[in-house]
């Protein structure tokens, strides 16, 4: 099977899974198909989808960002101090929040690129730092977010959830440059083979720094959207987002070994994950056992993706 076929099949599988799950969710939901239900679903899904895009950028350069949840927590707390008041103040606040996210991501990149610390440990440590700052800045949830803007971005436009529209715009805005621009292709090349990329004359360091900074940017975007949905800042939201962003990327079929994948896959993975947890909520699974089912879903999903390893005819291929 060629790589192209496998990728198409994967996309098809993910889309079908999402459609089936979504249908099951609508059927079990007491209120059925309505703008209200779909909008709530979309808001929840988009939050994780943005976090999954953040994780995606680091994963394609063969990295991993265990600090993404902490970046989200920190920028969410920042938003709760900055995003309200006059339109000018709000705009300024949003810019500062996004810049803070980029800064966090850029620092991760610096540690990985120039400190030569492996991404998994580097971001574990920076995550502790960002999370600590968030906790110092706002020990308990609170603060204020402009609710007019929040409503605008979390309701619907003629029956279509605004958050879904935003997500589609974001997807188009990043998917095309990733395949068409020099920096986008550089990131994919670095993830595919750092040595070959270097020998081709690609600026490996720049590509990685950009990837980590973009992860920070999307972490901040996630945080802003969380702020618009909850209208508060919460320093404790981090860990769940770290775990679920990785799960979403893997569920979507983006390999953690880097170099391949599209943001769309990560987003679909995130939507699947959120649909499953909404589904569990309405099918009456005891809330205490929810972690078990979340873990189970993740385990089964990656297990299905790994069946190829068992079927592989050449044993040698398995070790590549």
């Amino acid at each position: 099977m060629t790589g192209m076929d496998r990728r198409r099949r994967r996309l098809l599988l993910v889309v079908v899974a999402l459609v089936v799950l979504f249908a099951a969710f609508i059927l079990t939901h007491p209120r059925g198909f309505s703008v209200y239900v779909v909008t709530i679903w979309a808001n929840q899904g988009v939050l994780l989808a943005l976090a999954a895009i953040a994780q995606f950028f680091v994963v394609i350069v063969r990295g991993i960002d265990l600090s993404i949840g902490s970046i989200i927590a920190l920028t969410n707390v920042a938003a709760s101090y900055l995003v309200f008041g006059t339109p000018g103040e709000i705009a300024f606040g949003i810019v500062v929040v996004l810049a803070l996210g980029v800064l966090c991501g850029f620092l991760n990149g610096l540690v990985v690129v120039f400190g030569r610390v492996e991404p998994i440990v580097a971001t574990l440590a920076t995550g502790a730092i960002y999370g600590g700052i968030a906790l110092l800045w706002r020990p308990i949830p609170g603060g204020e977010i402009d609710d007019t803007l929040g409503d605008l971005l979390t309701y619907d436009v003629n029956g279509v959830p605004t958050s879904l529209i935003v997500l589609v715009v974001v997807l188009v805005a990043i998917s095309i440059p990733l395949r068409r621009t020099r920096i986008g292709l550089s990131m994919l090349a670095v993830g595919s083979s750092e040595q070959s990329a270097f020998l081709t004359g690609i600026q490996v360091r720049v590509a990685k720094l950009v990837a980590y900074s973009l992860a920070g940017l999307f972490g901040a975007l996630t945080a802003l959207y969380i702020a618009f949905v909850t209208l508060t800042g919460d320093p404790a939201i981090g860990p769940a987002y770290t775990l679920n962003s990785i799960a979403a990327v893997v569920l979507g079929g983006v390999p953690l070994t880097g170099g391949v994948g599209a943001p769309l896959l990560a987003v679909l993975g995130a939507l699947i994950l959120k649909t499953i947890s909404s589904l569990m909520f309405f099918t009456g699974i005891p809330p205490l056992a929810q972690s078990f089912f979340e873990g189970l879903v993740l385990a089964v999903a990656i297990g299905i993706g790994a069946i190829d390893a068992l079927r592989s005819r050449s044993k040698l291929k398995v070790y590549e």
Binding site: L243, L256, S291, F292, G295, A299, I302
Partner: peptide
Amino acid sequence: MVWTLAVNSM
């Protein structure tokens, strides 16, 4: 990493 995270969650 992903598998053991899932196991931990379960």
